[in-house]
């Protein structure tokens, strides 16, 4: 994918507002550490902890504590293989359903399961949940605690799409914020991106974050963004690994992230982004979601 080539190490300084607050411990790329130390030397802080989140007023949360189907007041489903039958524009191979075989809540986690089975002409089934027409918000903190699956051709995602201004507004003009994506065959690599007009698909503003001596699929991680006017910060656990601002967009491109966005969580199989599963891919694969929480932008940043 071009997206890999697109990845630029953003060497900008992390703003003062992200430092010197209580929060997670610092474990971030060297350049950011360096920036932190420089700032700390000016601010006479007592420690080098980095705060990755600032917004704490909950506006929506689903802890997935009730066994059975997900809460219908929050979640709807995309069913099938896309409105054009083209695997949701990505040549994905799965047929999405809302069956418990593909999505259910058990023991405090939502389980999205990708099955290898012949179903409605597709070779795989899985699920895609979305809060469209049920919950959307402008700015704020959006995070989920997720254990991702693994294997060639497996593509889990926790992401957002902008609510249409009018029925004729289409992607990428509506905007897309990818909070978490990963390729099952790259179990240590997290991808966070923004898509908009002039910077979508393979040209998205994107960053890959590589875990060291650890993997994404062996346990739960917190994936989130903090989003305000003119910035989106991507974080995993206690590591803020990217900030995207209008300055990062191509010359003349519009920043389309000042309106309501809704949430999507899905587990895709195959497609142009990951390639197809192969004989080595283990099925079924499960994506576990412990919670989804959304906080209000507090306007102080």
């Amino acid at each position: 994918m071009n997206q890999i080539n697109q990845v630029q190490m953003k060497e900008k300084m992390i703003p003062q507002r992200y430092l010197n607050r209580t929060g997670g411990t610092l474990s971030i790329m060297n350049k950011l550490v360096l920036a932190g130390i420089l700032l700390l030397s000016f601010s006479c802080a007592v420690d080098n902890e980095q705060t990755v989140t600032n917004f704490t007023q909950l506006t929506m949360q689903d802890e997935f504590d009730t066994d059975g189907a997900p809460d219908g007041s929050i979640w709807g489903y995309d069913i099938g293989n896309g409105p054009n039958g083209d695997g949701w524009g990505n040549q994905e191979l799965q047929y999405y359903t809302d069956r418990p075989e593909n999505v259910t809540i058990n023991n405090g986690v939502m389980i999205i399961t990708a099955q290898e089975e012949s179903f409605q002409g597709s070779g795989y089934t899985s699920a895609r949940l979305l809060t469209k027409d049920k919950f959307s918000q402008t700015y704020g903190r959006f995070e989920a605690r997720i254990r991702v699956p693994y294997g060639q051709g497996i593509w889990p995602a926790f992401w957002m799409l902008g609510v249409q201004d009018s029925p004729t507004e289409i992607w990428p003009f509506i905007g897309e914020i990818d909070i978490m994506e990963m390729r099952g065959q790259d179990p240590t690599k997290l991808i966070g991106s923004l898509h908009g007009p002039g910077y979508s698909g393979g040209e998205a503003i994107s960053k890959e974050y590589l875990l060291q001596n650890e993997r994404l699929d062996t346990g739960f991680h917190v994936y989130g963004i903090e989003w305000g006017p003119d910035y989106v910060n991507h974080y995993i656990d206690d590591v803020l690994y990217n900030q995207i601002t209008p300055e990062d967009l191509p010359e003349g491109a519009d920043w389309v992230f000042d309106n309501d966005f809704y949430i999507l969580i899905n587990l895709a199989v195959g497609g142009s982004f990951v390639g197809s599963p192969n004989a080595e891919t283990v099925f079924p694969q499960t994506m576990l979601v412990d919670y989804v929480r959304v906080y209000k932008y507090n306007g102080l940043n």
């Binding site: 693994y150 179990p187 240590t188 060291q212 001596n213 650890e214 993997r215 699929d217 062996t218 283990v282």
Partner: peptide, 10 residues
């Protein structure tokens, strides 16, 4: 080595 990435035992 302790790679930390040897996972998903089967």
């Amino acid at each position: 080595e302790k790679l930390g990435t040897v996972a998903q035992p089967r």
